Amino acid sequence: MSIDSTASQRGLFIVFEGGDGAGKSTQVAMTRQWLENRGARVATTREPGGTQIGEKLRSLVLEHGHGDIDSRTEALIYAAARAAHVQQLIAPKLAEGTHVICDRFVDSSLAYQGMGRSLGFSAVSAINDFATTGLKPDATIILDISAADGRARRIAASGGVEDSDRLEAEPDDFHERIRGAFLELAAKDPRRYLVVDATGSVEQLQQEITTHLAGLL
């Protein structure tokens, strides 16, 4: 029987998290292909983004040239984009039986704004619980990478020139706090998280990921 055999069966919500340069977009695409090969309906999306308003908010919060953005404003922009994302795309797709794979979700806000911007997990969690109506991923894959390795990958991918957005441009100690936050979140709920070493080969990572997901399916 197909893993997605009935329209009434809720889809799985799978999220990829990790530092900048960890290779999330590659693994998102490969995981989508793996699920589709098993007969599933799959939607891939990203945060911030996924909807028309979400993409506009993405440009405001990530692109340079919009002036200073304080930490609380930054956190609220991400939460607003996420609220639209859940209501307009993620929740409807899951309800119709489509698996949704998302590049970043609430954990990124907990890591970047909660830990990186020192707003605290509790405050950031509260606004995101409201934004998402409490929706949580069925599986969260964390691609673990050091700040230095992530930066090197970003530079290599851009042809040797560091072309960073607002958050990528933060110093390495900021990104190491982000890394620590992701690992802390995973340690609190090991059943929902899979942490993989992002310095491994693309094929090795995909094997670890699909083995984990196969157990859920």
Rank of each mutant, 00 (worst) to 15 (best):
M1S: 15
I3D: 03
I3W: 07
S5Q: 12
T6G: 04
Q9D: 14
R10V: 03
G11P: 00
G19E: 07
G21L: 05
T26D: 09
A29P: 00
T31C: 07
T31D: 00
G39H: 00
E47K: 00
P48N: 12
Q52Y: 00
Q52C: 02
L57D: 00
V61Y: 03
H66G: 01
I69K: 00
I77D: 03
R82F: 14
R82S: 10
V86Q: 01
Q87S: 12
Q87G: 09
L89R: 10
A95N: 14
V100H: 10
V100W: 14
I101Q: 06
I101V: 13
F105P: 08
D107T: 14
L110A: 01
A111M: 02
Q113R: 02
G114T: 08
G114P: 12
A126Q: 15
G134D: 01
L135P: 11
L135M: 03
K136N: 05
A139N: 02
T140Q: 12
I142A: 06
L143C: 08
D149I: 12
G159L: 11
G160S: 07
E170G: 05
P171G: 07
D172E: 15
H175Y: 08
E176D: 13
R179F: 12
L183D: 11
L185Y: 13
D189C: 01
R191S: 10
R191E: 10
D197N: 13
D197F: 04
G200V: 11
E203V: 08
Q204T: 15
Q206E: 07
I209H: 07
L216K: 13
